[in-house]
Amino acid sequence: MHIGFIGLGNMGSGMAANLLTAGHEVTAYNRTAAKVDALAAKGAHPARTVADACRADVVMTMLADDEAVQAVSFGEHGIVASLRPDAVHVSSSTISVALAERLTAAHRDAGQRFVSAPVFGRPEAAAAAKLFVVAAGDSQVVGDLAPVFEAIGQRTFVVGTEPRSANLVKVSGNFLIASVIESLGEAMALVAKGGVDAGDYLELLTSTLFDAPVYRTYGGLVARRDFEPAGFSATGGLKDVRLALEAGEALRVPLPVASLLRDRFLTLLATGGGHLDWSAIGALSAWEAGGASPTT
């Protein structure tokens, strides 16, 4: 399959490389040309414009936020204007439910197809093709995309025929991850100040009731204070919590924990930690209890 890939950041570079490894033809675009050149060395075709990347059967976007996705999707030379009829735009970015609805309508009006397929997993999972893909869209189109999803992930979950459903699931999942990070950080700060080694405590947790990847991965980052380089930044974490709050407001679902998490991320950003991994909010409680700041 010929795939245009837009966005070669921490996640996108690994995803695009795995599409090449699986035998797909990839035409890649990124604002930073050096990242395109690096993928071209592995066999990709370089695209110098968004429109160049849209001469494919499928165009995938993996970008930071709503603003970035809108910038490449709309306008005279954007995806909607450049993609041929019946071609497919697959958005793997974590975007708002509202933007997913707007993209669905725009592509439908242009005679194109749109599928939301955000992913769960950090950059190391993207590089290893071990992501979990959450897909939603027309059933036939999603089925035809199975070889694409198999190339980037270990399992695909289809959650509906409306693309927005996948974005709602992704936003809710990131909200849950942030909740785990915050609660783990509070519990670890409590036992550490009482003289219990944080690493030993984490080993107990993950060997008993909390044997799950999210506890092992993020608990390890907090225990080691391993916040740089960021796999996913605190700035991005704040963005995703805001997306959850936005979705909750639209659906009239109160999310009091999300409101708390927004303030925790704001605290981290206000003290210079926006560039840190989002797991750094798990170090705020220890700092507030007299320990070191996450930024030191």
Rank of each mutant, 00 (worst) to 15 (best):
W287S: 06
A44T: 02
T296S: 15
D37S: 13
G153Y: 05
V257L: 15
P294M: 08
L284W: 09
L251P: 02
V159D: 00
A129G: 05
L168N: 00
S73I: 01
A189S: 04
G282M: 09
G14K: 10
A110C: 06
A128W: 09
E246L: 07
R262P: 03
G75Q: 15
A192Q: 15
V26M: 06
L238W: 02
T21M: 07
A280F: 06
A289G: 14
D197N: 06
A192W: 02
L204R: 07
A53R: 11
V222S: 05
K42D: 10
T49G: 09
H24E: 13
A289F: 13
M60R: 13
V50Q: 07
M60C: 15
S73A: 06
G220E: 02
S92H: 10
G153V: 00
G173D: 00
L184A: 03
A230W: 10
I152D: 04
K130G: 01
V115W: 05
T94N: 00
A286Y: 06
E124G: 08
A292H: 07
V58P: 14
A198D: 03
A258L: 02
V72H: 12
P254G: 00
D263V: 03
S91K: 02
M15E: 14
T161W: 04
L205W: 01
E288Y: 10
A270Q: 11
L260C: 11
L39M: 11
V88W: 10
A151N: 01
V214C: 09
S179R: 01
M11H: 09
P163W: 01
A292P: 09
P46H: 07
K35V: 04
S207M: 06
L251C: 03
A56C: 13
G185T: 05
F120Q: 09
A270S: 14
E150L: 02
D37A: 15
A22G: 12
S139R: 15
G185Y: 04
P118C: 04
L184N: 00
V158P: 07
A87H: 14
A16M: 00
L243R: 15
R48K: 13
L245M: 13
T27I: 10
D109N: 08
A106W: 05
V115C: 08
S293K: 11
I152H: 00
A22I: 06
G220A: 04
S259T: 15
V241E: 07
G12N: 03
R55S: 14
V191G: 00
A53E: 13
S293G: 08
V148Y: 14
V36P: 00
A192D: 08
G9F: 01
G121R: 06
P85T: 12
